[in-house]
């Protein structure tokens, strides 16, 4: 218990320190927030455009899809605030051979590498995503249902765990692959799978993608399943699978991370 408390205190200090360093470059910070807002506007104009042409997209009505967009935006906010910058930096630490300093500290390496910086500029996205989801629920005349909310929160957590696991694994590959392209770009390409409802892949040859990214690398479930649960009904099979796969992916990515650390050879020392 004492140990857990220590990690929470560390997390708090990281966040505080990050805020202080952000505030040293206030204009840059505001610019980053503006960028996130611009991305939101783009998502919404895109969504409005799609639904000006059609009433449903692979079975998703306009209100349901808005909820999906809000859910995606909020999840993106969590991942970017906590992990994305850290994962990018992890790649750099390996490339430059500076990881040694982290390995020497009396803290779990994965914790240190994953949480060291907190990106405050993306944190408002969680709130804005929440507002979008609320607007969508109002449009859908959603009836309050505490069980659904609990299920949603659990599955949203599962989605975060899945996304974090994939990100950690992707960042860990930097130990073996000589990296020539930015991790940020690879991650951006990969998250395409989470950005749209998974049903759009249920079409001809794309079914193979659907199967692969639902069961082997379950990236398509990250946003789709929590959103479906909230605006439709709780699907026992997929809900349980998200929880199980989240645990499996977390364990696998931790194992993969430790393996990567073991293969890490420092540079220039």
């Amino acid at each position: 218990m004492n140990q857990t408390g220590r990690y929470f205190r560390l997390l708090f200090s990281f966040a505080k320190f990050s805020l202080a360093s952000e505030m040293a470059f206030r204009w840059n910070f505001l610019m980053k927030v503006a960028l996130e807002l611009l991305w939101l506007v783009i998502l919404i104009v895109f969504y409005r455009t799609l639904f000006s042409k059609t009433g449903t997209i692979s079975g998703w009505t306009e209100g349901e899809y808005l909820f999906f967009v809000g859910c995606y935006y909020a999840l993106e906010g969590v991942i970017e605030s906590f992990f994305l910058e850290n994962a990018t930096e992890f790649s750099e630490l390996i490339r430059k051979g500076d990881l040694d300093f982290y390995l020497l500290k009396p803290v779990d390496e994965q914790f240190l590498v994953s949480f060291r910086k907190f990106d405050w500029s993306t944190a408002p996205k969680v709130l804005i995503g929440g507002v979008l989801m609320a607007i969508a629920l109002k449009q859908l005349e959603w009836v309050f249902d505490p069980i659904k909310i609990m299920a949603f929160i659990t599955l949203f957590g599962g989605g975060i765990a899945l996304a974090y696991g994939f990100l950690l694994a992707l960042a860990s590959t930097s130990v073996w692959l000589v990296r020539n392209q930015s991790l940020l770009e690879l991650w951006w390409l990969f998250t395409t799978l989470m950005r749209y409802p998974r049903e759009i892949y249920q079409n001809g040859w794309a079914w193979s993608l659907w199967v692969f990214f639902s069961f082997v690398v379950p990236a398509m479930l990250v946003v789709s399943i929590p959103a479906e649960t909230m605006v439709r009904s709780i699907d026992p099979f997929w809900s349980i699978w998200v929880v199980i796969s989240a645990i499996l992916v977390l364990l696998a990515s931790r194992w993969f991370f430790r393996r990567a650390i073991r293969s890490y050879r420092s540079a220039s020392s």
Partner: peptide, 10 residues
Amino acid sequence: LLWKSVYLGA
């Protein structure tokens, strides 16, 4: 695939 869905839906 997204546009396919839009045209199918419309």
